[in-house]
């Protein structure tokens, strides 16, 4: 077991890379050791992750179908030989 990070400030500073899975293993272990001793930081981690999930749910955008159509029409007009999906080229899914 790694020595726990001493301060919450160190824990918070590393949280971004920890959540993204890019923190080196020994630093992640030190952070987890801190979490095992620090309920406020556990709450902080959970709400940090919830923030990301809420924003993703609220703000995710799909490309509108009409925009796909207008892009295809634009490229068919401006790129010689360009074929729209209806006649054999373009988007697969």
């Amino acid at each position: 077991m790694a020595n726990p990070l001493e301060h919450c400030a160190d824990c918070v500073e590393l949280l971004g890379e920890y959540i993204d899975g890019s923190l080196p293993p020994e630093r992640a272990e030190a952070l987890e050791a801190h979490l095992s001793l620090c309920p406020p930081c556990i709450t902080f981690v959970r709400t940090y992750k919830a923030t990301r999930a809420l924003c993703r749910h609220k703000l995710a955008r799909e490309m509108p179908a009409e925009l796909k159509s207008s892009l295809q029409a634009f490229l068919a007009k401006n790129v010689p030989g360009y074929r729209t999906p209806g006649d054999g080229g373009g988007e697969k899914n």
Partner: peptide, 11 residues
Amino acid sequence: DAAAFAELVGR
């Protein structure tokens, strides 16, 4: 190959 370019656009 314009079809290959169309595939890249789609992706």
